[in-house]
Amino acid sequence: MTNNQKLNLFLLVLALLAPSVLYPVFLAKVLCFALFACAFNLLLGFVGLLSFGHAAFLGTGGYITGHLMINSGLTPELAILTGTAAGAALGALFGKLAVKREGIYFAMVTLALAQLVFFIYLQAPFTNGEDGMQGVPRGEAFGLIDLSDNLTMYYFVLAIFVFGYWVINRTVHSPFGQILKAIRDNEDRATSLGYDVNRYKWIAFVISAALAALAGSTKTLVFQLASLTDVHWHMSGEVILMTLVGGVGTIFGPVIGAGFIVTMQNYLSGGELGNYIHIIMGVVFVICVLSFRSGIVGQLMKFKRDNFS
């Protein structure tokens, strides 16, 4: 067992025990956003592409899953699977268009496409517009496990998260992932080595979109709600912030970042500072960009490198 595997096992045990001290719905929320941020980071951290439109995938997963849970007899895992597939399909379309442009243009194209999706959901009748889809039933996973209990729901979410995290881990450490990193570090060289750069970017985009939709689908079940908040550009900004705080380009960073931001939001929205939440998020953004670019996990890794090796 390598050190990394030991660490992962330790974290898994921690996640299994966590509900004994913390509220399961809160933990499930953290895991959903952690998966969302990990999916986003696959693009930013390992391909160097800044997507400003990931809310579109989170929201699509959520709406499709919610719609199916309300209107069809599908079991939750099948509804989630369909939501994920819908996110992947949308990602395939977005990706085809967005990889035509680089850097800042990539960010603007994804933002604009996500806004297009936002307006479509705003007008489409099945989303209930501003009110959102409320009272989504959680159903019984595989027709056996009743998810209405919050603790059961949490372990269901944990299983999904572990699966998503594993997919990302495998992707990053595969030969495919090596090519992605080569593209990130020097795109021209990757091209000159004969790789079809845009194709690799596109595949990474689809994987990232699918996992973001998986997170959105799961989140809808947890909160029994799918709303426009999840497709709004603020959400695309939030996931960037989570990744940035945790550490861009580290596999575990986005998880820490998501935990940090979700905790902060929960804490603030209860108190009188709730009105300042966007200002505080903006300040955290500015501080991170100005003087904390490697994020929490990035800093820890640097500290470990400097002192223990």
Partner: peptide, 18 residues
């Protein structure tokens, strides 16, 4: 340059939030 983009995004959040 993506960092400057993110910086201005943060500033936009602050101004709009305020």
């Amino acid at each position: 340059h993506l960092y400057s983009l993110l910086l201005t995004f943060g500033l936009a959040l602050i101004i709009q939030g305020a």
